[in-house]
Amino acid sequence: MKDYTIFDIVGPNMIGPSSSHTAGACRLGNIAYKIAEKSIKEVTFLLHGSFANTYRGHGTDKALVGGILGFDTDDERIKDSFQIAKAKGINFKFLAEYLGDVHSNTVKIIITKEDNTTVEILGSSIGGGNIVVTEINGLKLEFTGEYTTLIISHIDKPGMVSKVTAVLSEYQINIAFMRVYRHEKGQNAFMIIETDDEINNNLVIKIKDIEYVKKAYLINI
């Protein structure tokens, strides 16, 4: 946990009514939006626990859809997110579902992209607007978005870590935390890199150019 700053306490600036059920939900939607590379045709939200029981009264549903539209937690359009999504031709639905031994405020977001591929994100809103993502496309991992986060989807090959960190080093980016996950040896893998410094798009493009890197997303919330 980072040390509390002034604006962690007087803040976040947000659309009410609840930091965990509204602001946190919006952040989870927003992360899914970035991981789906802003291309969204259809979304199903599987709501677990307290999210499933109280989502209407807290506007959790509107906040999730707002996130999927790329809205930040303080965007006043969240209130009208259903209409905005419909106008954009995005279909969405909410289903209550038991998702196992997870945090009480958990959602699984299943996105069908415009190219008909799907992306699945599992994440929880853990209080005060803070969130944790615990699964992408069935692969267990963990990041909070508290730091600037770079998510790299790649093939599990020797030398991948050194190629990626070489680019970060070239741009003078300090890595706070870094983890590597994979389905199986030589198969799909993810790198999660949390940094102290802001990352610009040129760096992301350069990482995408590395052989065996499939995708790279920047999460900055």
């Binding site: 007087v10 659309i15 009410g16 009514p17 930091s19 006043e76 209130k79």
Partner: peptide, 21 residues
């Protein structure tokens, strides 16, 4: 009231107590 109607507020320190400060 604004918070409870999905209006914009500053959590201080939380949304539920955002009116006092």
């Amino acid at each position: 009231e604004v918070n409870a109607s999905m209006g914009k507020i500053v959590a201080a320190p939380t949304a539920g107590a955002s009116g006092i400060l």
